[in-house]
């Protein structure tokens, strides 16, 4: 005998496919939706359909956008000779919040990660090389995460861009703002020391 009605168990199965959602959380969410109003359920369903139907990749920077090209690439106020390469669309959001960067972006959609089957070819690296080749770009900032895979990705891109003659830089690594020198680990501290600058 089946205890849960088929539509409910189907919803649970679908939710269960999402990352970090286990079977227990999935059933909790399903019953929450079931108990809630029909409006809320429809709003959720519509929002999910909208992101799939309305969101496209920007043909220049490959960020997610509603219109192509994206607002950043279409803007006349941005510095078109400066390019910042990031791993994920969320990194663009983080960098935009700083209001410090006024150039254009290039979103790779991941890092080189062979364990999970992601090779350089699977990222938007070829598009990046073309972009640097075809446009008048002075500097490329490689803003990868400071871990093994991020370093490898930056290193790979660097090798491809050096022959094109653009200046290539990476973000500084070191002490967090508001952090305590005393509690920084040796590696972070020695990075900070190497990356010191004149004031």
């Amino acid at each position: 005998m089946k205890v849960t009605a088929e539509p409910v168990s189907r919803l649970i199965d679908e939710l269960n496919k999402l990352p970090t959602i286990g079977p227990k959380t999935a059933s909790r969410l399903a019953f929450y939706i079931l108990r809630g109003s029909k409006d809320n359920a429809e709003a959720l369903a519509q929002a999910i359909i909208d992101v799939k139907e309305k969101i496209v990749y920007c043909s220049e920077c490959f960020n997610l956008t509603e219109q192509d090209p994206c607002p950043v690439c279409a803007s006349r106020d941005r510095d078109r000779t400066l390019l910042c390469v990031v791993e994920e669309p969320l990194d663009v959001v983080a960098l935009e919040k700083t209001h410090e960067f006024n150039g254009l972006y290039h979103v790779l959609h991941g890092h080189i990660d062979p364990i999970n089957g992601i090779m350089a070819d699977d990222l938007r690296i070829r598009e990046l090389v073309d972009r640097v080749k075809l446009n008048d770009i002075n500097e490329v900032i490689l803003a990868m995460n400071p871990n093994v895979e991020g370093r490898a990705t930056a290193n790979y891109i660097n090798r491809l861009l050096v022959p094109l003659g653009a200046t290539i830089s990476t973000l500084a690594t070191g002490l967090p703002v508001g952090g305590d020198l005393e509690y920084a680990d040796e590696v972070t501290l020695s990075n900070a020391l190497k990356g010191r600058r004149l004031i």
Binding site: D113, P114, I115, N147, E149, A152
Partner: peptide, 13 residues
Amino acid sequence: AKVVAQRNGFLRN
């Protein structure tokens, strides 16, 4: 350890 794992993944791929 991470690099060895990634490198092995690369060679397999």
